[in-house]
Amino acid sequence: MDIPRYWRLKSQRYRLQGRRCTDCGSLSFPPRQVCMKCKSRNSEPYEFKGKGKLYSYTTIYQSPDRFEQIIPYVVALVDLEEGVRITAQLTDYFPEQLEIGMDLEMVIRQIYEDGPRGPILYGYKFRPILCPGIES
């Protein structure tokens, strides 16, 4: 059980909170303390909107122990609207529905249960966009 870590990472996992460099405007996720572009250490929290496109994906059949309950599952590279590429699990897609470039949106799901007695970890996953017309 790594309870302090769960607690520390909750804004990133619940709200896709990264950082924005206050010198050059570069965004990062997961959040970085030093800007990758201009090396500045000045940054502020930034919440990504949670909309993106599928860049690539793979299906996992052999997983770490904590994900054994959900195999097979799909891990994807998602290009966020704001121009940052992140790794995330996909959920709730029809078989054959996945297509490179398709529109995705973030949802909050169980990531794993830390055994029958430990905490349940929640965080972002992505799914095919439900209502393309609606702005969030």
Partner: peptide, 8 residues
């Protein structure tokens, strides 16, 4: 789904 519950 396998990753859903009352909270999600």
């Amino acid at each position: 789904g396998k990753d859903e519950d009352t909270t999600t």
